[in-house]
Nucleic acid binder design. Structure first.
Length: 428
RNA sequence: GGAGGGAUGGCCGAGCGGUCGAAGGCACCGGUCUUGAAAACCGGCGUGCCCGAAAGGGUACCGGGGGUUCGAAUCCCUCUCCCUCCGCCA
């Protein structure tokens, strides 16, 4: 959400931001409603002030004068009621527009309508020819007894999987490595709820918009308040301090959430259907930073959380490229986003494994997440987040990049301590 | 699953349906006193929105939503959360 006062004062910046993101948005309608809201507020509050003053007199009056005042008050009550109803109607539409209003992208974000316009910033590692026909992760992992896809389908349908034996152990090893990296860098690990209330999803800017991508769980005692399964622990972690006024001295908060993530992947039929690249349920370690509203500090945090993620890929010895995400692919909330894409020989392509996002105060406003600044003023925080590691997608890159001619998979050195020193996974 | 109790400002804790944004205490900030500190004393000390250049004024908020009333922190309904006891269970 943007500051209504900011939209009022910089309507052109908001219009231009929406245009760059390719999101149709009616700024004029929002401004008109904002104007109307203020007009009605004034009328309603004036009537209330009179009502309050007269109401206080009622107690001291008796007889005809009391009856007269009561009669006048009845008229006032009707006026207040009418204004309140008008105000409610206007506020409902205005709030919906405010929630939908896109955060203008940073000037640094490349122009372009979709991911095809993403700009490569740099690369790490060498994408080298394996020297033999690359197998993809399904073939490799199935052959090594790491993965069951067909039986998993009987259990849970499409886009499900069973990690098995060395596959399951490898996943745990990767998750643990990622947690150790992020904790060593000063982040506090949080094991968080995956079943959450709706405000957390609105607050993190997933709703309205991503309802169809999210699993909804009926609440047996209240149909009005369903629960939802998070698609990322970013939701639970960022919303953790929602509604609070933090002390500037305790910022920045550096958190890493660990959780299972759930995504319906509606509308992706036929896309990435093979293997475990795109699935309904996966494990992820996610980093979140909450700090004061200072652009320079946000930029520094963004660089830091990006490096944290790169450190994980480097330790896994996975070549990757760093992509600045185009304005049209940022979504409504992000100001700036950088994706990391690891090389996946089975696809002969880079595949997205991380996504580092800077929101400014867009999420914080929705979450009512604030802090008291050193000057005593209350301000909205800035928030950022990035993946630390997500499995099983990272396993796709891992087994494909480290496959050997005989179908075995070499374990990168950094991962061996988590696997009892295992150097390679070989066919049983 | 059954029975009961509770939710008030950063914390604790009062609050006959009107003069309650809300007593009191703690914490915090400023001042007096002191060589300095402590103690004592004096003062300040919530958030949003509206009007205003500002000073300031208005309005809303006592877990959320709805209702009764001229008027609700106080009465009624409902939801959420917390606690106690019984039952069941990882």
């Amino acid at each position: 959400m943007l500051d209504p006062a900011y939209i009022r004062e910089h309507p052109d910046a908001v219009r231009r931001g929406a245009r760059r993101k390719g999101i149709a948005f009616d700024v004029d309608r929002l401004l008109a409603l904002d104007e109307e809201r203020r007009r009605l507020t004034r009328l309603q509050e004036e009537a209330r002030a009179e009502q309050k003053a007269l109401g206080r007199q009622v107690a001291t009056l008796a007889g005809p004068s009391r009856a007269q005042v009561l009669e006048h008050l009845a008229g006032l009550k009707a006026r207040v009621q009418a204004h309140t109803e008008d105000l409610e109607r206007v506020t409902t539409e205005l709030d919906a527009l405010l929630l939908a209003c896109p955060n203008p992208p940073d000037e640094d974000a490349p122009d372009g309508p979709d991911e095809g316009a993403n700009v490569e910033l740099r690369r790490w590692g060498e994408v080298r020819d394996l020297g033999f026909a690359a197998r993809d992760h399904v073939e490799l992992m199935t052959g090594l007894g790491m993965l069951e896809v067909e039986r998993a389908g009987r259990l849970a349908g499409s886009r499900s999987y069973v990690l098995k034996g060395p596959g399951a152990l490898l996943e745990q090893a990767v998750l643990r490595l990622a947690q150790d990296v992020i904790v060593a860098r000063g982040f506090v690990l949080l094991s968080v709820p995956v079943l959450v209330k709706e405000w957390t999803l609105r607050g993190t800017a997933y709703f309205p918009g991503a309802e169809e991508q999210t699993y909804r769980i009926a609440n047996p005692t209240s149909d009005d308040e369903p629960y939802w399964l998070v698609g990322t622990s970013e939701v639970s972690v960022t919303a953790l301090h929602g509604g609070e006024i933090l002390d500037a001295a305790q910022l920045p908060l550096r958190y890493a959430g660990v959780s299972t993530c759930f995504r319906r992947e509606a509308g992706t039929y036929g896309k990435d259907t093979r293997g475990v690249y795109r699935v309904h349920q996966f494990q992820k370690v996610e980093q979140v930073v909450v700090d004061v509203a200072d652009d320079a500090r946000s930029l520094a945090h963004h660089a830091a959380i990006l490096d944290n993620a790169e450190e994980v890929l480097r330790r896994l010895e996975l070549p990757y490229r760093v992509m600045a995400v185009a304005a049209g692919d940022l979504g409504r909330g992000a100001r700036y986003k950088v994706d990391l894409e690891a090389w996946m020989p089975g696809r002969q392509a880079f595949g997205e494994t991380h996504s580092a996002t800077r929101f400014g105060d867009y999420q914080a406003r929705r979450l009512n997440l604030r802090y008291r600044d050193t000057d005593g003023r209350v301000r909205f925080c800035h928030t950022l987040n990035n993946t630390v590691v997500a499995s099983p997608r990272v396993l796709v890159a891992l087994v494909e990049a480290h496959q050997q001619p005989d179908g075995s998979v070499r374990i990168p050195t950094a991962l061996r301590p988590y696997l009892g020193g295992l150097e390679a996974i070989r066919a049983p």
